[in-house]
Amino acid sequence: MELIRLKDVTKQYKNGVTAIYDMNLKIKKGDFVFVIGGSGSGKSTLIKMLYREEKPTRGEIILGGLNVAKLRNRKVYKLRRKLGIVFQDYRLLPKSTVYENVAFALEVIGTKGDVIKMKTLQALELVGLKGKIRNYPDQLSGGEQQRVAIARAIVNNPRLLLCDEPTGNLDPTMSMEIMKVLEDINKTLGTTIIMATHDKEIVNKMKKRVVVLKEGRLISDYEKGTYAKEAANSF
């Protein structure tokens, strides 16, 4: 079953720059998809449109039966509750502990106190940070901070996890840690994951579906495990 479908999506920014040209894309439920491409290829714009930070200029984006392109500003929160988002810069609250940072996501949508506690601890266990719940973000390594951000993104059991260069600030070892956590989430929770990255090393190792963007166009779409071979052939 497909979770996401993009139909003839074009995004032109107000300054005249076109970031995405006539894109068509289908993503199945439970998939793990890499979106790769150089700077300015439109990866971030694609991710932003999926969580309705940006609206497509033309075309349709259907996400779990919801037409994201037509979603009114007031209703965006309904979409956001169905997905988790992870960024390169973690975006944690510096004055809150690890626990509070994750619980915050549930608090602001009005979840009950005991449910918050249970879900927060579950999410932190999944990312392997149960022992650091009382630490503050500045007492953690980059990889750990990113895992807190991932815990926050999945604490509300989203169907889709969007990651915009989550390993961009991390060294290769920490990056692989993050990838393990993401793969774990994908397998155990069945969460669909879309990850934008330009780290080819990771993409090669993970052997997942890979969507390649170049200058706003989808130039190739490799099925699971075929990317490494093809990429190797192209050298």
Binding site: V76, Y77, L79, R80, R91, F104, V108
Partner: peptide, 15 residues
């Protein structure tokens, strides 16, 4: 920052 995170995790405008 807090506001932007609230938006990301799906807090309604009202809240």
């Amino acid at each position: 920052r807090e506001i932007s995170i609230m938006r990301l995790v799906g807090a309604s405008n009202f809240s």
